[in-house]
Design a protein around this nucleic acid. Structure first.
Lengths: 196, 196
DNA sequence: GTCCTTAGATACGGTGACGTTTCTTAATGC
DNA sequence: GCATTAAGAAACGTCACCGTATCTAAGGAC
């Protein structure tokens, strides 16, 4: 809190509120996420939050958006399929805490009426994987690196599926060796196959 | 409640308590799991539960065990690798609600002191996959179906990793077509590769 | 039948979070 | 300077759940 100013207003206030909401969501997950926690973290009072986001789900959605979860990621272009997919997976791995926040929101939807459309959240969870893998494959085929093929979606999404799986199962970032295994031992051999 | 008997005792009572606890855990997940809910579901009073399981985690663990989560599954033996893995994955898919209950317990461990050792729970989550895939592969190699090889663990666990991933991401059982894709388009081509 | 254990019902006090109200006063625009 | 808005502090009532205490009486052993 700036000593020359005691109260925040406008965009500065909202930014601070959403920073706090995002941090709280990442920190405690959806079930324990609440107005008291966010207010304390933001150094504000609850009416300030309720005025803008009258229901928990409003605040959660705003926090997710503020956290950049809905941002599109640039498609890596390293000149090789291996480089592209490694970059994409490492980026995702490094940004995992946002993913984990969304997972806690998403799984909470089993048991509670979050008001969030599961399809919307699912789209966000899978964003960058339904398209990224396929785009990288098509580009590589265009370069002649791999045979052109109409890829089953399960192959296009395989690397990110596995990263996602590990993030949930271990609650830790993947060791780089695991990323290399996914790429070098599993995905690349598969996409390099000649297919009838 | 049987009209000729009004109170349960002994093994009958415990079984009913754990049935209820398990059902509650599957229904509401770990964060919302509590003594009031279990007591209501079991048609009992809270002291009855507290007498046996003084802390929530005791009750959760007992419910998990009662739900058969810690049971060993028989290794399928259909005479072919494809048959074996399809059977294993379909069984797991059918039994998924137990898996989802464990996931909610496991993820809750991020944010709460469950008193459960993450390593223990992780072992249970991965049970049947660190070993099953490898055993099926070794058996198939022994039959001459596939080249013998020292399989990277990521390949041995690949089918169940993907099933697990989909269960979490979709909150639904996998369509059989997806299981067939995992087996026929991804795993079998990979394990049939000649490897230097 | 008696005696003992404890199941089941009920009540209780405490706690934490929610959602709202009240109040003071900082911040902004005129 | 004044008027308006709303930030921030604090308090409040409600509710759900926890964990415990009390009581009645069912169930089982003898």
């Amino acid at each position: 809190m700036d000593l020359t100013k005691t109260r925040r207003r406008g965009a500065e206030l909202e930014s601070a509120l959403l920073d706090a909401a995002w941090a709280e969501l990442e920190d405690v997950g959806y079930p324990a996420f609440g107005y008291d926690g966010v207010a304390a973290r933001a150094g504000t009072s609850k009416p300030v939050l309720y005025r803008r986001w009258p229901a928990k789900v409003d605040l959660v959605l705003a926090a997710l958006q503020h956290g950049g979860l809905f941002d599109k990621r640039a498609l890596p272009d390293t000149g090789s399929l291996r480089g592209d997919i490694l970059t994409a997976l490492r980026d995702f791995n490094a940004a995992r805490s946002g993913f984990m926040a969304v997972i806690s929101v998403y799984l909470a939807g089993i048991h509670a009426d979050t008001g969030l459309s599961p399809a919307e959240l699912r789209d966000r969870l899978l964003a960058g994987s339904t398209n990224t893998g396929r785009k990288l494959l098509e580009r590589a085929a265009g370069r002649g690196e791999i045979p052109a093929r109409n890829w089953p979606s399960g192959i296009a999404t395989l690397p990110s599926d596995l990263v996602r799986h590990d993030l949930v199962m271990t609650l830790k970032p993947l060791p780089d060796a695991r990323i290399l295994e996914i790429v070098d031992d599993i995905w690349l051999p598969l996409v390099r196959l000649r297919h009838p």
